[in-house]
């Protein structure tokens, strides 16, 4: 319980610090935001200075930055991040919808990665130095070198254009998930396989594996009961890092496959100088990442009892 309270305090403090940075960053980028907004709406070379002034006052951009921050934070803690400069609609519902899409995509990609990487990593470790190990290691290492902007069009060409088996772009159902998930999964497959192999290999050399075999468990039962669980500990860490990364949205994959997720949303917001949208998406992404780290820590104590605080006797 005390552990949880401490974690939550750190979490809130971290979010507060991040919110300030997130608020400032759009102001540190070059270009007058008011001018950008106006240019987005008025199709004219010359901008009317009066119009500029009134717009600036309307959005409160003429006030000192700290006042603006306090004002923004006061409404932001209630979940209100204002209105998009471009669409003039509230930003949060748009971010919510995009985040859901990205979440589905990320979970799909990582699920696929885990489903491939865990068995291959474990198998490679069990056959260390043999041909199976070499094959798995070589292939998955090669995956790291495959860029998404190359793989995505290739998959579209083969599966959508040539065979017509899968949709090429859009987001309308499970079939639309397959190609983007495969594209996104390739690099995590590589990293997860390698870390699973390394960690499993270390576990297999541990004394407690000898201990379990001396109790008569046999090779495979020992691996199942005492090997895999221990080998998973570093994999969980990597998983949370990747999930955090993928939840920010993949710009390349979402743009190529025309997926309305976080990546495309942020990309467009930056492109249009849509400050409230940028700020709100950043806060969302950071919040999710920090929450994930907390969840990982808690999950850790579940699979690895040695990091639990309590000691029973001496």
């Amino acid at each position: 319980m005390r552990f949880l309270v401490r974690r939550l305090t750190v979490l809130v403090a971290a979010l507060l610090a991040v919110s300030f940075l997130v608020f400032l960053i759009p102001y540190l980028t070059p270009g007058d935001p008011t001018r950008k907004i106006l240019r987005g709406r008025v199709n004219a070379m010359d901008i009317d200075p009066a119009q500029l002034e009134s717009l600036r006052a309307q959005y409160g951009l003429d006030r000192p930055v700290l006042v603006q921050y306090a004002d923004w934070l006061a409404t932001a803690v209630r979940g209100d991040f204002g209105y998009s400069y471009t669409s003039q609609a509230a930003v949060m519902p748009q971010i919510g919808a995009a985040a859901m899409v990205t979440l589905v995509l990320a979970v799909g990609a990582l699920g696929l990665a885990i489903a491939v990487a865990l068995p291959s990593g474990i198998l490679a470790a069990m056959r260390r130095g043999g041909p199976v190990d070499t094959a798995i290691t070589t292939v998955t290492q090669a995956f790291v070198a495959v860029p998404e902007y190359w793989l995505a069009p290739l998959l579209i060409l083969v599966f959508a254009v040539k065979f017509g088996a899968l949709p090429s772009a859009g987001w309308a159902g499970p079939a639309w998930m397959i190609l983007p998930c495969v594209t996104l999964a390739l690099r995590p497959i590589s990293y997860f396989t390698q870390i699973t192999r390394a960690s499993m290999a270390e576990v297999l050399d541990s004394p407690y594996i000898v201990g379990a075999r001396a109790r008569g468990l046999g090779y495979y039962r020992t691996i199942l009961r005492h090997g895999i669980r221990n080998a998973l500990i570093p994999v969980v860490t990597l998983l949370s890092v990747w999930l955090g990364g993928l939840l920010g949205g993949s710009v390349v994959v979402e743009v190529i496959f025309g997926i309305p997720g976080m990546g495309r949303l942020v990309f467009n917001a930056v492109h249009n100088g849509d400050i409230p949208m940028i700020q709100a998406s950043m806060v969302t992404i950071v919040t999710i990442t920090v929450l994930l780290a907390t969840v990982t820590d808690v999950l850790y104590t579940v699979i690895n009892p040695t990091v639990r605080g309590s000691h029973v006797g001496s």
Binding site: P207, Y208, V210, A214, R225, H226, N230, I303, P305, T306
Partner: peptide, 8 residues
């Protein structure tokens, strides 16, 4: 101690 699985 090292002969026992730390997670079980």
């Amino acid at each position: 101690r090292r002969m026992l699985d730390p997670t079980a």
